[in-house]
Write a protein that binds this DNA or RNA. Structure first.
Lengths: 212, 212
DNA sequence: CTAGCATGTGAACACCGTTCACATTGCCGA
DNA sequence: TCGGCAATGTGAACGGTGTTCACATGCTAG
């Protein structure tokens, strides 16, 4: 975690506030990360948060970046086991593409609170870029998708023509399903059903992108 | 609009509050429909809202149902011009399916505030079913998708095997793109680009569902 | 050792959702 | 016709929120 300010009175507030925010968001979603609750959980005064964050939105974005890291980490672990498998590159490439989508969906189903919070990170209006240029220029989860699609091109399962703008159908389908399953009409369905539907969605969109 | 209570003092508050809520939500999204603001816009005391709605959530759901109707209406108008076209039933069926998806996307892009509000309707935890059984059992926009897919089966462009659970890939892709374009990284992109990407997403998911 | 500054605090303000006793108004039966 | 009743609207209040500001505290550079 990029931490510049040296610990003074507390030790490292800012980090402690972000951790408390992650705890609250895990069960309560984005609405649960409130200035007063977070500072209360950290055993500190509400006003102290404003020494480290400009306002409530800045705190929210900081916690959201944390949950986005968790999402990216879960996706990487999901596909790491596949890359170790040294089978044919064609199958491997599409397996990685599927793994990216399924990792995204699995994380959303397993941690809906964190997932809903991570979505705030994709909103450019909210993610204030600190001064110059920064990491998080393109969100890590999205970068994993781009890499997987590029891998499909080099492996020959996707033509150069089929590659252009392929990110959006893929991300749309996977993200849309995660949203529907998490906050929409599929909410509360049993886990096996949701997992099966998730696989179905990924299979259909991969087929659609390849059919070109 | 289902309106049971007879107008007493005001004329028809409830309806006036819902209208005011729609006005506020159009520019400000779901967060803008607040009890105090809505009653203020209607020129009435904040407490008066509680004669017609149990709490803030109930008011929000009522306004969301209104915006959902607007969404369904926009989608119907989008496909109505296609049904008039008496060409081959195969092309007609897939054109209707595409029209449903594009109507959904176009509405989201044209009215992001209303669209974000309409999403609340798909959440079963929020849409309180008044007593027995009701309309809105399955949301009208979703019903349009189901009908379009069934039409593809009868027209022969979709096998019975390919039809099962086809709603979810379709809705996921279209809804996911609408969400990404509205609140995500595509937010603020110019309209022609978004429209072209929307067409691309719809084309890919339709191809994916047909390829089975 | 001391001056200065980063950090944490307590109280206050405005806004929000919500409740409650009370005022107003239309309707319906005697 | 008229009186009462129930439905509707009101003003003030309570607890919660984000946010600010003067003030207290304690590390650290010189």
């Amino acid at each position: 975690m990029p931490q510049i300010s040296t610990p003074y009175h507390h030790g490292d507030l800012r980090a402690a506030l972000i951790d408390a925010g992650l705890d609250l968001a895990r069960t309560g979603g984005p609405d649960a990360v409130r200035v007063r609750e977070v500072t209360r959980a950290a055993g500190v005064s509400p006003a102290s948060a404003y020494r480290h964050f400009a306002d409530h939105r800045a705190l929210l974005v900081a916690v959201a970046l944390g949950s986005q890291d968790l999402l990216a980490q879960a996706m990487r672990e999901r596909i790491s086991s596949l890359v170790a498998d040294a089978s044919g590159t064609q199958e491997q490439a599409v397996a990685r593409l599927r793994g990216v989508g399924l990792g995204y969906i699995d994380f959303a189903l397993a941690e809906p609170g964190w997932f809903a919070l991570a979505l705030l990170t994709f909103d450019p209006a909210g993610a204030a870029a600190p001064s110059v240029t920064v990491a998080h220029e393109v969100p890590p989860p999205f970068q994993l998708l781009i890499d997987a699609l590029d891998g499909c091109v080099t492996a020959g399962v996707l033509s150069a023509e089929g590659r252009v703008n392929a990110e959006w159908p893929c991300w749309s389908a996977v993200h849309g399903f995660a949203d529907i399953a998490t906050r929409g009409p599929l909410q509360g369905q049993d886990a096996p059903t949701l997992a099966a539907l998730g696989v179905h969605v990924v299979d259909r969109i991969v087929a659609g992108v390849r059919s070109r």
